[in-house]
Design a protein around this nucleic acid. Structure first.
Lengths: 198, 198
DNA sequence: CTTGACATCGAACGCCCGTTCGACTATGCT
DNA sequence: AGCATAGTCGAACGGGCGTTCGATGTCAAG
């Protein structure tokens, strides 16, 4: 048995499949793989595709065109990058975003995620100016969570949350700034990850 | 003209297209869109697809099946997550990775990128334990770049680079640790971005 | 009322798709 | 020699595919 349990031919076809898919945005047909691999019979490709499916490296076929997909490919969701003024969570309508951020859609529904670009230094050391954060829509959070708070005038801000007896307090991580009560603001979501260009 | 220059029907079909693509990993056929939109004639869909193409929202068709793609979808590449012991850059062969990380493939060839998981606190404040970094393969770098250095025994480390007259020096950002010369190590790549779970 | 944009239909054409079949050639183990 | 495994081929079937056509309906603007 070879190093991965794959024959060289099977490895080649798996790589051709992956390359084509990322190059074009959709998987190849059996006959397109024929040309890529330099063989003339569709059955040759089908033969190897079957072997790869047996080994669990490809999704099971459904008789549909271009359905050859690698199982090793984590499912990716494109979440909208909304700037610093996110619209309401219920608004399915498109207030068309600045762009999209790819995330691996493993835990939870990616439809409940969005991204924001950070402006300013109020969360410095944790969040820098220009950072992109991934946020999950939710209306409640716990002490020390970094949350997105939205005000009725459409303004939004990212701060660390402290749950106090007197009410919710928003704490800038940058000690140059002072904590302040949440006031009329509502929690719009919780920051779950951060992407920074160096 | 409507808010985005799109009729409600066109918006609907664009959304169905996007949903299907992220759900299945490949775009729908014209007739699959028929069923989704609840219409019986393929020409109805084709009609709207043509309109959307005119407005530059879809890739130009090529007569191939499942080729309807949104232009607003940034191209995504899945780069391999190699742990902390990356193999050589020329080795196209698979030392199968721990997983994959999605990145937007805008600047440069995504094939020259890989990802690493950070262990330890030697770069603390800049890089935390458990962070994922995106690295571009390159054998040279400038002062203050964060670089991946590989040693002949297969060990690898991430440090900040200082170019000094006496040679290259690796500086841990954490002041608990001391700078040290690069020795027999080679620069394997430069850290270009960072992903952190909060 | 006429015109134009928007939207839909059913039918049809021809090609390409996934799939299957039988036959063939190596290679290597028993 | 016998046999299993890996790999290839060409041909064929039936169906799904993208595409085009002519006809029809709706609705707001002129």
């Amino acid at each position: 048995m070879e190093k991965n349990g794959l024959t060289p031919r099977q490895q080649q076809i798996l790589e051709l499949l992956g390359r084509f898919t990322t190059d074009h945005g959709y998987p190849p047909t059996v006959r397109e793989l024929c040309r890529l691999a330099g063989v003339s019979s569709p059955d040759t490709i089908q033969y190897h595709l079957d072997k790869l499916r047996e080994k669990g490296l490809l999704e099971e076929a459904k008789g549909r065109s271009r359905s050859a997909q690698m199982t090793t490919m984590e499912r990716v969701a494109m979440i909208p990058l909304l700037g610093l003024v996110p619209a309401g969570p219920t608004a399915g309508a498109y207030a068309e975003p600045m762009g999209h951020v790819p995330v691996v859609a493993d835990r939870g529904d990616p439809a409940s995620l969005f991204a924001l670009k950070i402006k300013g230094d109020s969360m410095q050391s944790t969040l820098h100016d220009g950072d992109t954060v991934v946020v999950r829509w939710q209306e409640t959070a716990s002490t020390n969570d970094v949350v997105v708070v939205r005000y009725e005038d459409g303004e939004a801000t990212v701060k660390r949350l402290k749950v106090k007896p007197a009410g919710l307090v928003l704490v800038p991580d940058n000690t140059k700034y002072d904590p302040f009560p949440i006031g009329e603001g509502r929690i719009a979501g919780k920051v779950i990850s951060l992407i920074r260009k160096l």
